[in-house]
Computed example of a mutant assay.
Amino acid sequence: MKLHLLTAAAAVLLAACATTPAVSSGPGQLDTEGPVQVSWNDPAEFSEITRGRDRMETLRGTWVRELATYLRDTAAERLQPGETLEVELLDIDRAGDYEPWHGPEADDIRITRHIYPPSIVLRFRHLDATGGVLAEGERRLRDSGFMSRALTHRSSDPLRYEKQLLDDWLSRELGRS
Rank of each mutant, 00 (worst) to 15 (best):
L5H: 15
T7F: 15
A8I: 02
A10K: 02
A15I: 08
T19M: 11
T19R: 10
T20W: 00
A22K: 09
S24H: 13
P27Q: 13
G28R: 14
D31T: 08
D31Y: 00
D31W: 01
V36P: 15
N41V: 10
A44V: 04
F46T: 11
E48Q: 13
R51P: 10
M56C: 11
E57T: 03
R60M: 14
T62P: 11
T62Q: 11
E66H: 06
A68R: 10
T69K: 06
D73I: 01
R78Y: 10
Q80K: 12
P81D: 00
E83Y: 13
E88F: 04
D91H: 03
D93M: 02
G96T: 00
D97Y: 00
G103E: 07
G103N: 10
E105K: 15
D108W: 14
R110I: 05
I111N: 02
H114A: 15
H114C: 10
H114R: 14
P117L: 02
V121A: 13
H126T: 02
R139I: 01
R142L: 10
G145P: 13
G145Y: 12
M147S: 08
R154Q: 14
S155I: 10
D157P: 07
L159E: 12
L166R: 05
D167E: 08
D168P: 05
L170E: 09
S171N: 12
L174Q: 07
S177I: 14
S177L: 14
